[in-house]
Amino acid sequence: MNIKRNYIDIRDEKIFYLENEGKSDKNILFIHGNMYSSSCFIEVIKSLKNYNIFAPDMRGYGNSSYNNKITSMGDFASDIKEFILKLNINNFTMVSWSLGAGVALELSRDEEIKYRIKNQILLAPFGYTPFKINGTDLLANNFQEYLSNFDFINPQKNLEILKGLMTFNMNLIEDSFASMGMKGDKLKKDNIRVLFKTFIYNVNMPGQEEFERNIDSAIKQRNLEEVAEILRDYKYCGGKLNTKSVVLHGYDDRVISYMDGRFLAEELGSKFEKLDDCGHSVMTDKKDFVVKTIKNFVEE
């Protein structure tokens, strides 16, 4: 499968995106989550070779530029709106994951865009409650259990590292580890590996190539502090969607509670699917089911 890598100018930014020109006129738009980029969908995209696929890196992520700071979920949505209009993407299935779901939901409210959306699939969506409320006790318990396996970390530092993970503050995490004599580029990647293995891939690990590709995406993120502020405050308030939609949420999600996904689905008027033996990375733990669901939606 030939996945093209392109750039498009959106205001003062160069937005990178993956594209597959399929043999049909059926379109899919992917919107990635925080600390990731379009590359997190590559394994799924490989199974959708007959469709027209668009998967941008949002501003400040992956290979896209970051000339202007993000201040709200609406900024991300505004960028993707211009992306859709410039490429004239119509009648598309929108697939969003985690933070990307908040962007997708804001797009669903836009008068110029909402009638272009055929239907949508939200994977472990963010949007029911702000991150400052969502899952903090669960994150704390899981990370403390994880840290218990490391005898080089003392209890006093646990809280600092935990705070960094819960707020996606990699600088705080790095400072904490560096104070124990750990530093350098390897440190930064190791920190992200700890975070991903603990919270994102707690059920199944992706293949090594995919895992390292996603680590590289996280390293490239330049909007971390701004996104952390958005996550602390954002809640979707747009009411029911005007298109068919489904929320797929893992029961073992350590980042966003599956109950938040269920409550959000009720607000949206969406079908809700609780996925057993599935964590936050729905595309990893339930890839075949995700691909099947996407195909069913696209073919409607």
Rank of each mutant, 00 (worst) to 15 (best):
D57Y: 04
N204F: 07
S37C: 13
D285P: 11
I80L: 10
G269D: 07
D175K: 14
M205V: 01
D216I: 11
K287C: 08
N67D: 07
D288Q: 14
D151Y: 08
K163W: 12
Y36D: 12
V290Q: 14
N68K: 15
N223A: 15
T71N: 15
D253A: 06
N149S: 13
L85P: 01
I256R: 05
V247Y: 03
Q120W: 00
S98Q: 00
A140E: 14
K49W: 03
C40A: 12
E106A: 12
A101P: 01
T284G: 07
I28P: 05
R222F: 01
N141E: 08
G62K: 04
K183D: 13
N169K: 05
C278R: 03
S270N: 04
K240P: 02
N214E: 10
T93W: 03
F131D: 05
D233K: 13
I53P: 06
K114N: 10
R262E: 14
R59Y: 07
R59S: 12
L224K: 06
M180K: 07
E43T: 08
L162M: 07
M166A: 07
M205W: 04
D110G: 08
P130M: 05
Y61L: 06
F30N: 07
G181K: 05
L172G: 00
G279A: 03
S98H: 00
I28W: 10
A55K: 04
K183W: 05
I3F: 11
N63H: 13
Q221S: 15
E212A: 03
V291I: 14
R109N: 11
K86Y: 05
F143G: 00
S78P: 04
Y66Q: 11
F168C: 03
C40K: 08
N63Q: 11
F92G: 00
S108E: 09
A77T: 04
Y236H: 05
Y251M: 12
K197P: 09
M283V: 14
I28Q: 06
Q208K: 15
K286Y: 05
T167M: 09
F297L: 05
Y251T: 07
I84A: 01
K295N: 09
G62P: 06
I161P: 01
L264Q: 04
V247G: 02
D190L: 09
N34L: 05
D137L: 03
K81I: 04
T93C: 10
Y61H: 15
G74P: 08
E209G: 12
A228H: 03
G135Y: 12
S257L: 10
T71Y: 12
A140K: 15
T136R: 13
G279Q: 03
D79A: 09
R11L: 12
K49G: 08
I219C: 04
L172H: 02
S179W: 10
L138T: 11
N169P: 02
